[in-house]
Design a protein around this nucleic acid. Sequence first.
DNA 1: GTTGGTCTAGACCGCTCGGTCTAATCGAAA
DNA 2: TTTCGATTAGACCGAGCGGTCTAGACCAAC
Lengths: 206, 206
Amino acid sequence: MENTAEIDFEKKEELIKAALDEFTEKNFSEASLNTIIKKAGISKGSFYYHFENKEDLYLYLLNHAFNAKWEFIRARGDHNPATLEKDDLFAKIKIQARLGAEFAAAYPQYYQLAMKFSSEKGHEIYDTALDMLGNKSENIFDEMVEAAIRNGNIKDHFSRDFVVKILRYLINHFNEIFDHQEGIGLDELLADLDNFVDFLKYGLSR
Amino acid sequence: MENTAEIDFEKKEELIKAALDEFTEKNFSEASLNTIIKKAGISKGSFYYHFENKEDLYLYLLNHAFNAKWEFIRARGDHNPATLEKDDLFAKIKIQARLGAEFAAAYPQYYQLAMKFSSEKGHEIYDTALDMLGNKSENIFDEMVEAAIRNGNIKDHFSRDFVVKILRYLINHFNEIFDHQEGIGLDELLADLDNFVDFLKYGLSR
DNA sequence: GTTGGTCTAGACCGCTCGGTCTAATCGAAA
DNA sequence: TTTCGATTAGACCGAGCGGTCTAGACCAAC
């Protein structure tokens, strides 16, 4: 794909739709490019004219999904955790997690894609994609935790590393823990979420 | 495979070794039977004489791994959580998790196999294997949690379901959270483990 | 009308996959 | 020594894969 600009062609919509369907159902290696282009009603020649290969398409989709999330969060900038300097770590986490949940509800396919992607850990494609995306959000998150530790809000017999690992992992895997499926109600999800963050707070803060 | 009895044939050892290597590196669908039998120095004909297919081999390995774990835990029956009636839930969890960690250290390949297996969730093979194994351990675990809730040791604004889901998931994914690699020292691992269970205790109990 | 670049169609390629099939080998029983 | 079931070897099969390649459709410029 020409990374310089947004390319456009006749059946781009159909291709993206078909690719999303495939990549949210199967992981990268199991997903079939043939299936995708058949579903999109596009020929091999057309596909390979616009994209380098299967990986190119996958990265393109991932990029779109993450951009959508950033845009979604930016549009609700008033609630952005970075703007709430006075609140404590867990209040920020709650807000951030809420935004994540709302995004998942608004763009379920992008959310599912991100879930499938996170299960690619250990595969080549995972590191390739991380390189491309540049994980800014993780750094912001780490800084939030660091600040909380400095301020003495965390039980002090837990090391910084310990706290960061737990929080990062648990927040990312919240949906997996409570295996919220596609059609779950947002209210129900947010109730679980609040309880979950409370649990984290009791567990880590003093 | 004839499930009735333990079958035996000349290069069984090599086959199991090769299969473990493959199934701990790749997931079920990506693992190559051709690679396995080549590595084991066995022919297609021999393989298909002793096993039905690739799935049969995989289930055979899984079964062996889980039996090994049961045997391992049985051999340390004196520390079995079921025998410690008076201790609280989190003490039991600590003991159980310790056993798991020691098993992982003693049989790293079996442990890795189980990890890879748990990431098969959503695939057909996952349910097939669960059916075969019959998840007894989960039931025992659920009963432990139920008992703790009945005894009033858990914060009462957390529902039973909530507590069970959190504990079951977090205990199973402990190693993933702290991404302990193969050669990690047991001491280091147990230190993280103790802290982690403390975190769970603070988070859930009153 | 001819040229020439853009885009599409789909046959085709080489490869790997899980699985099948048949001929050959082997060893014990007769 | 012959026989016969148990076991092995590996050629072979059809299918699917990602990716390549060429012929031609389309269309604007000249």
